[in-house]
């Protein structure tokens, strides 16, 4: 006897309630599938677009060692994009559709990558703060309800353990350096701190997808909780190397057992999401250009495969 949609929904909800993962061949509500495609593809696009601000410093890394490390990190980001695209494809959407959505502005990527990397210290700040914030988010997502997404997160978290440390080490060395180097580190922290806090998204009450995503256990912790976690772990790291977090309202709150911190400039947040950040156009243009430049490779591979099939 065929199961009714109601039966299927009940079975789905029961799995979610029991902390069981949803796997690709399981029945799932269309809205759950769509929500996942949106979030996972946005995550994949972020990994790939995120290669641009760091790639900007590859040829100018101060030593061969730093160049090797940066290259390894950027290679990881590309790999993580592939894990996430593949996991998204288990939901019945093609890679091409996902890339088209990015190019046509229907899919987003993390707004942080619309800020420019102006100095070498920015590479330190990106690893320390941007990867630090991403890791806080991704550790939480290891417990997401969709199996392929959760497994990709486990793999990514394991590989990313060095990303934050290599960035922090750059900051440590600059902070211990000359006055000019220390000023460069402080300047990078000043510019990357607030955009890093924005990475966690709007306040819970104003987050468009949060409530449903939490019910479906796609998201496991709220934007504000994750942001607090990031602030709490990062402030002592800044203090340890004599850098100042650019927030006059930042203060330890003994009663809460957390740091209090100032309000994010939400106008800036909205402006960058809308496409008016410093690098939005450049990032997308570069991605399209790279995609178009690679078209002949994809065509050659398709031609080769067609010829082999006809042999």
């Amino acid at each position: 006897m065929a199961e009714t949609t109601e039966d299927l929904e009940q079975a789905f909800e029961a799995k979610i309630a029991a902390e069981e993962k949803i796997e690709p061949k399981d029945w799932m509500p269309e809205a759950y599938r769509k929500n996942l495609v949106r979030q996972m593809s946005q995550h994949a696009h972020s990994e790939v677009i995120g290669m641009q601000p760091e790639g900007n410093w590859l040829t100018r890394a101060p030593t061969l060692k730093r160049k090797c490390i940066l290259l390894a990190k950027i290679q990881d980001e590309g790999g993580h994009g592939l894990y996430l695209y593949s996991a998204t494809e288990t939901l019945g959407v093609s890679r091409e559709e996902l890339i088209d959505a990015l190019h046509e502005g229907r899919a987003k990527y993390a707004s942080i990558f619309n800020y420019p990397s102006l100095t070498w210290a920015d590479i330190g700040a990106i690893g320390w703060l941007v990867d630090g914030a991403a890791i806080v988010n991704q550790i939480s997502l290891q417990r997401t309800s969709y199996g392929p997404y959760a497994r990709a997160m486990v793999r990514i978290c394991k590989e990313e353990s060095f990303h934050q440390r290599q960035g922090y080490e750059i900051m440590v060395e600059l902070a211990r350096g000359s006055d000019a180097q220390k000023a460069m580190a402080q300047d990078a922290l000043n510019r990357w701190w607030w955009p890093s806090l924005m990475m966690f998204g709007p306040h819970d009450a104003e987050s468009a997808h949060s409530a449903q995503s939490m019910l479906w256990k796609i998201k496991r912790q709220s934007n504000d909780d994750l942001r607090q976690k990031f602030v709490d772990q990062t402030v002592p790291q800044a203090e340890a190397i004599g850098l100042r977090i650019p927030d006059d309202a930042l203060v330890w709150n003994e009663a809460r057992g957390h740091y209090d911190f100032g309000e994010i400039d939400w106008d800036e947040f909205q402006r960058v999401i809308r496409g008016d950040g410093l690098c939005n156009r450049q990032r997308l243009r570069h991605h399209k250009q790279a995609h178009d430049d690679g078209a002949w490779v994809r065509e050659a591979m398709a031609a080769y495969a067609a010829r082999e099939e006809n042999v």
Partner: peptide
């Protein structure tokens, strides 16, 4: 350098 243990953290972190 692909491993976190390659990097030393300052005292207190």
């Amino acid at each position: 350098y692909r491993h976190a243990t390659y990097y030393t953290l300052p005292d207190g972190v």
